[in-house]
Each structure stands twice: as C-alpha cells, then as structure tokens.
Amino acid sequence: MKKKIIILALIIFAGTIFDGFAEIVYMNDGQIIKGDVLREDDLSITVKTKYQTQNIKKKHIARIMYGDRDLEEVNILKIDGSIIEGYLVDQDNKQVIIRKEKTSKNEIIIKKSDIKQMSSKSIIPLQTGMSFKVGVFNPLSSKGANFQSSLIFLGSIGLNLTFIKNTRIFIEGGFTKLDSDSGVDVYMQVIPITLNLNYNFNISNFYIIPRVGAGLSMIEFNDGLNQPTQGYDFTAIGGVGLEYEIIERTLRFGVFSDFVHLREKNATLNNVMGGVVISYLF
C-alpha cells in the first residue's frame, strides 16, 4: 500500500514539473504574456498564466521565447561607429533582432556583418578628433602695459575616455600677440599649450561642452626699452562651448567662451577669449 502511495505521489509531482513548457509570448501589439504552454497546433496555442488560461491565435503572435527566457539588454556597436541600445529578441549566424523598448512591437534587424561589437554592458568606442578655433583674446588686467584685444588661433587633438561616457581629453595649442597702446614697440606674445578635459552634454544635434585645462604658456614680452624677455607662465583655462552637429559623429561647428589665467612669480594676467570652433571626429 505504501509503495502505491509513493508511486502515485511521484507521478503527481512529475506531472506538476513537466506539465507544459515555460515560455514568453510576444504579441504583435507589443504585449508580453508569460506562462506555460498547455496545447499547440498550427493555428493557435493555449497558455496558462498566473491568473488565467487563454487561447491565442498564432497570427497575433510575433515571437515565442521558450524556456522562460526574458529579453536581455544589449548594446551594439556598428561598423559605421553608431551605437544601438535595446533588447535582444533573437539572433542567428547572419543577423540580430532587437527591440528599442521591451514592450514595443517594432523590431530592428541588424546584419552581423555590420556589427563590430555586441555586449550587455555599455560600449564606448575610442574616437579621436581635432578642432580649430579663431577668436578674440582680451586681457582684463594688464595694468600699465595697456594691452589691447587681439586675434587668437587655437588647434587641438584628442580622444574620448572609454571608461567615462561623453568625456574627452585633448591637448590644445595656440598663438596670439598683444600690442599695447602705450608704445609702438610694446607687445606680449603668448603661445599657450594646455591639457584639457571636457564633457559633452547632448541635446538633439546640439552639444553643450564645459571644459577645464592647465598647462604652460611661452611668453615673449617687449617693454619697448630693453631686449625682449622670454619665460613660461602657468596657465589655467575654464569655459564652455556650444556646438551643432552638421554631420553625425563627424563634423561640428559652434562657438566658445573661456577664462584664461596666466601666472608667473611676480605677476598675473587674467583674460577672456571667445570665438568660433570647428571640430572633426575620426
């Protein structure tokens, strides 16, 4: 008698385990149904969910994921440099199918030949670039030298930080020559070379770009009385730029405004500069 009871209990337990296959049904309208398949034929399936049992026509079903496997987040870096974030629906040796939103009915098919990298973690591809600036350099506190505003030319080259999203590091060099209204031969030539860090806030096609930097400036000063003197001043820069993306991930054009602090042992010179910038990303 005990043997029969044990066998009956095992049969009931096994039936509980193997009654249907756990799965996720993705409907054409974006609805997601989780449950166990009780029956299936060519036209429909019967699914038992936590709350009810329902019969679903296959013409309303976009996809069935067997084994209770939910959609996983995926990040795809394409050969052209673009990044697509979404949820992995399915894949084979030729293509990958993803959804931007888990419950969206729209699915994106990407050929594997167009994919450079695919990961469940965020992908930040290495991207080098350069920029050129033309602006006005305006001394704020030149004291008795009475330096006038002058054109400044700047160029930089850099790359993004792959471990901090939207952040770039770059080296910038420039040139300006400040003339004085106190004498014909009085001038100061400034060649700043700085290491900078900026962050790109993206709003549609616009980028707001705050930056900070520090370095040295090669200074040549002529007081009009003696031979020109040369030296190196500590240089600190802080400012912000606004750029518009003309060609996606490649070309931007915008404006910038910076505060520039020059310091030597016995003197400091505060300046502001602003102008236009064009940036090219490789």
Results as ranks from 00 to 15, higher is better:
residue 201 F to L: 15
residue 167 T to G: 07
residue 180 S to P: 13
residue 103 T to H: 01
residue 104 S to G: 00
residue 193 I to E: 12
residue 126 L to D: 07
residue 144 G to N: 14
residue 105 K to W: 04
residue 156 S to N: 15
residue 135 G to Q: 09
residue 132 F to A: 04
residue 146 N to C: 09
residue 108 I to S: 05
residue 117 Q to K: 14
residue 190 V to A: 14
residue 163 F to W: 11
residue 107 E to D: 09
residue 112 K to R: 11
residue 108 I to R: 06
residue 196 N to K: 07
residue 146 N to Q: 13
residue 131 S to T: 00
residue 166 N to F: 01
residue 115 I to Y: 04
residue 180 S to V: 09
residue 169 I to S: 09
residue 117 Q to D: 09
residue 117 Q to C: 11
residue 191 I to C: 08
residue 153 F to L: 15
residue 113 S to D: 13
residue 175 F to I: 06
residue 191 I to E: 13
residue 102 K to N: 00
residue 201 F to Y: 15
residue 120 S to G: 14
residue 146 N to H: 13
residue 183 G to I: 08
residue 184 V to I: 13
residue 132 F to W: 00
residue 106 N to E: 07
residue 138 N to S: 10
residue 167 T to D: 05
residue 185 D to S: 15
residue 123 I to N: 05
residue 181 D to F: 14
residue 109 I to T: 09
residue 178 L to F: 08
residue 167 T to I: 03
residue 121 K to Y: 07
residue 177 K to S: 15
residue 165 K to S: 06
residue 135 G to Y: 07
residue 109 I to W: 05
residue 127 Q to M: 01
residue 152 I to M: 06
residue 110 I to D: 03
residue 187 Y to S: 08
residue 173 G to M: 09
residue 186 V to S: 05
residue 162 T to Y: 01
residue 140 L to N: 04
residue 162 T to N: 12
residue 138 N to R: 04
residue 163 F to P: 01
residue 119 S to V: 10
residue 157 I to E: 11
residue 178 L to S: 04
residue 198 N to Q: 10
residue 183 G to W: 11
residue 158 G to S: 10
residue 136 V to Q: 03
residue 184 V to H: 13
residue 151 L to T: 15
residue 118 M to K: 07
residue 151 L to I: 15
residue 190 V to N: 12
residue 124 I to W: 04
residue 130 M to V: 00
residue 165 K to M: 02
residue 189 Q to F: 08
residue 154 L to S: 14
residue 133 K to W: 01
residue 156 S to H: 12
residue 132 F to H: 00
residue 161 L to N: 05
residue 180 S to E: 11
residue 171 I to N: 06
residue 134 V to Y: 00
residue 151 L to W: 10
residue 198 N to M: 06
residue 112 K to Y: 05
residue 175 F to D: 03
residue 142 S to F: 04
residue 109 I to F: 07
residue 156 S to M: 14
residue 152 I to N: 05
residue 159 L to F: 11
residue 115 I to S: 05
residue 131 S to Y: 02
residue 121 K to P: 02
residue 132 F to T: 00
residue 138 N to Y: 04
residue 170 F to D: 10
residue 190 V to G: 06
residue 193 I to L: 14
residue 107 E to V: 04
residue 126 L to H: 04
residue 189 Q to A: 14
residue 105 K to Y: 03
residue 119 S to E: 13
residue 132 F to E: 00
residue 172 E to P: 03
residue 183 G to E: 12
residue 129 G to V: 00
residue 123 I to D: 07
residue 201 F to P: 09
residue 197 L to Q: 06
residue 154 L to P: 03
residue 167 T to S: 09
residue 178 L to P: 07
residue 168 R to C: 01
residue 117 Q to T: 08
residue 124 I to R: 03
residue 196 N to G: 03
residue 116 K to T: 02
residue 185 D to N: 15
residue 170 F to S: 10
residue 105 K to T: 01
residue 152 I to S: 05
residue 119 S to Y: 09
residue 199 Y to A: 05
residue 106 N to F: 00
residue 103 T to S: 03
residue 157 I to A: 14
residue 135 G to A: 11
residue 147 F to M: 11
residue 172 E to K: 08
